[in-house]
Design a protein around this nucleic acid. Structure first.
Lengths: 339, 339
DNA sequence: TATTAGCACTCATTCGGTTTGAGTGCTAAC
DNA sequence: GTTAGCACTCAAACCGAATGAGTGCTAATA
């Protein structure tokens, strides 16, 4: 049996109706609310075919039909193709490059959640190579040093390092110079024993302090898993089918824990610049098997990228989501890309 | 009618039983599971009295009794008195003063949520006077300045400030010196027009840059509401009475939005060093009227304090919560206090 | 006088059965 | 190929009886 044009139209009608209502849709509805001018009986025949093709399912005998994961998949694929070079012009309210990265990201997550009405999640860029661009040591008070590390892409990390005594100005200057000459341009993997040895040799009397500082830096930069912000998790409650029994609870837990979701997002790496869609059972995470999870990648510079994810019901407004994501990605690329 | 000792014992028994089960407790249960050796009939009489005193209520005729807000209040007050100088010895797994403040706080929120099984929230200390302790400007690349501001209590803020040109080393040094001499020890309120004017005069050719920097600092320090972290919000699902109908959704929303809750926490200021308990209707926030909200204050130094809140069902294990909070407060005071 | 046993009563919850109505599949006619 | 008509299915809504936990009251008891 072939999937002809009429069948496709009916499938689309079913999906769109289901997206709106969340209820199984029957033949009569389609017959009435499309311009196909077909009787419900004919629609029924077609539906029967579509079911045989595995694109729609009946939750139970004598109920209407709902799209199957395969059905959604077809729909989404069609739409992604259509959207390929189109552009949505939602104006994201992100301003000023001078804002701090995390503020921007939190804001972005919120914008997405608010404009789509689904739950969103955004990760702080993962630095494949966290190259050190700049280090600055400063004495804050007599027993504390402030160490600021700027990484590629202007990601700033700072940490307090305890020290025993007030350092003379010249010593501080020297330390700063040393740190920068030895460490600039390196990433954590490259700070190996020999580099550390050299540094400590140069530092002579402050070698203990240097160790402390390096430890602090290492701790700060080490792969503590991916940092991520979520927003709009309570939007989940807007969709009854996610709200029933214990489902919402598991979803929210997944959003709070974040790990599973970020792992999934990063599985694809940055190679795939496009948008990834996991529909229902396609979703490898147990808690989200009733959801659709859409992920996208934004880029700061080569090898530095973060992920955005949107979690909502199967009946997600794919057009809007994809549009919003495309848009936000452009915004982010614009904000970060021109540095 | 008097609240004699026996009545008090029965009330306590009712509350404790209800805390465990979450179900209305009947006379027979009390009669069997206490060492009072009274028949259920007697208990019934006493219960009837307790109800008249407004300490317990019947959700409906022929159901058992549950504590009223007043009943809880009595119980909590008794308990707080008992606990006054006792000390719980849960070992909080917070280490190293060198950790960054936000990491510690996130960790603390998590510890609390995990060990109590309620939702927790912790605020980043609010600086009544955000005095500037130290400012450091550094050129990160040819068009970006990094500005690090250290506030009293070693709270670090950093921001990127765009600039048009690469500044000569001496200029940067001068700017740094100026900023520190003029701004050190001031808080945002004190940076008024005259100070800014003076700064700009000194800076002459860089006066535009100075304006940018001051803007960035102001933006960064301005009262953007209180920052707060939550943890364990999904614990809410563990309590059926909070889970029914739309309640959980509202609660989670409140926890996500945070504002209302932090406002409430800060209403008390830091004057009250003790623990504050809002039971059910005592709670001014609509969404949490079915909950108990326990808040505590931790101190970093004079005028610098943060809040911890625990949100759970009315039938909260008050002993444990108060114990845990006391303990955590000590830990935090210990970590921050010795600076 | 305080306590208790006994009993009638209340009412939320559970369970089985019926009704309703949306929706299907099939068949025969167009 | 399309449609009208009809028998059939089944989830959900509705209804009422049974269940049982728990109460309040009363009369007997210590």
């Amino acid at each position: 049996m072939e999937l002809d044009d009429r069948k496709l139209k009916i499938l689309t009608a079913i999906i769109q109706n289901y997206l709106e209502t969340g209820e199984p849709v029957g033949s009569r509805t389609i017959s009435k609310y499309t311009d196909l001018n077909l009787s419900s009986a004919t629609i029924r025949n077609e539906m029967s075919d579509l079911e045989e093709l595995g694109l729609i399912i009946q939750p139970h005998t004598s109920a209407g039909r709902i799209p199957s994961d395969r059905g959604y998949r077809l729909y989404v694929d069609m739409m992604l193709k259509e959207k390929e070079d189109e552009l949505n012009n939602l104006k994201v309210e992100l301003n000023a490059k001078s804002e701090r990265l995390d503020t921007i990201l939190k804001e972005a997550a919120k914008v997405i959640a608010d404009s789509t009405n689904y739950a969103s999640m955004i990760t702080v860029p993962k630095y494949r190579t966290k190259k050190i661009k700049f280090i600055q040591l400063t004495q804050v008070d007599f027993s504390t040093l402030l160490c600021v590390v700027v990484l590629d892409g202007n990601l700033i990390k700072n940490m307090m390092v305890p020290c025993d005594e007030e350092l003379p100005k010249e010593a501080l200057l020297k330390l700063n110079l040393m740190m920068n000459t030895f460490l600039q341009g390196l990433d954590m993997q490259e700070i190996n024993v020999s580099v550390m040895q050299k540094l400590r040799n140069e530092a002579n009397e402050y070698s203990a302090l240097i160790s402390n500082i390096l430890d602090a830096i290492a701790k700060c930069l080490e792969d503590q898993g991916v940092e991520a912000y979520t927003s709009g998790s309570t939007n989940i409650f807007k969709y009854p089918e996610l709200n029933e029994s214990g489902k919402a609870s598991n979803l929210l837990y997944a959003l709070e824990e974040k790990k599973e979701l970020t792992d999934l997002m990063y599985k694809e790496g940055d190679s795939n610049r496009g948008i990834q869609v996991y529909i229902g059972e396609e979703n490898p995470i147990e808690a989200t098997k009733d959801c659709t999870f859409v992920t996208a990648t934004y880029h700061i510079e080569d090898g530095v990228y973060g992920k955005i994810g949107i979690l909502g019901p199967r009946r997600m407004d794919y057009e809007k989501v994809v549009g919003t994501l495309r848009n936000l990605m452009n915004e982010l690329d614009g904000i970060f890309g021109k540095e």
